[in-house]
Simulated scan of single mutants.
Amino acid sequence: MAEDKPRIVITYCTQCQWLLRAGWMAQELLSTFGADLGEVALVPGTGGIFTVECNGELIWERKRDGGFPDAAELKRRVRDRVWPERELGHSEKKG
């Protein structure tokens, strides 16, 4: 992993079978930010956990934030932490 690029860690509950959801979130982040990311890691957990961290900072927590993020919201949160000046295109447009 490049030291100057963000590391995303998605921890998901194996008991709840949230691997596909975690993988989809990882795919969405990689599709949007591509080579600007240093790593996207999937970490199995238990007890209903679903968290997303960026460089060690919690940016989404299922219990705290009331469920799962949609892809656009997760991308906004990552962008806001790492590249606040970056535009996200169509996923950022307000309806």
Rank of each mutant, 00 (worst) to 15 (best):
T11M: 07
C13H: 06
C13S: 15
T14Y: 07
Q15W: 11
Q15H: 07
C16S: 13
W18M: 08
W18L: 12
L19N: 02
L20I: 04
A22F: 04
A22M: 01
G23E: 15
M25Y: 13
A26H: 03
Q27I: 00
Q27K: 14
E28M: 12
F33A: 03
G34R: 11
A35S: 15
G38M: 03
V40I: 13
V43W: 10
P44E: 00
G45D: 10
T46K: 14
T46F: 14
G47L: 03
G47N: 12
G47K: 08
G48W: 08
I49E: 15
F50K: 05
F50P: 06
T51N: 08
T51D: 10
V52R: 07
G56N: 06
G56R: 09
L58P: 04
L58A: 06
I59A: 01
I59D: 01
W60F: 13
R62M: 06
K63R: 12
R64V: 09
R64L: 14
R64W: 10
G67L: 07
G67T: 09
D70R: 13
A71L: 01
K75C: 13
V78D: 00
R79T: 05
D80K: 07
R81L: 12
V82L: 14
E85K: 15
R86L: 13
E87K: 13
L88Q: 07
L88G: 09
H90D: 13
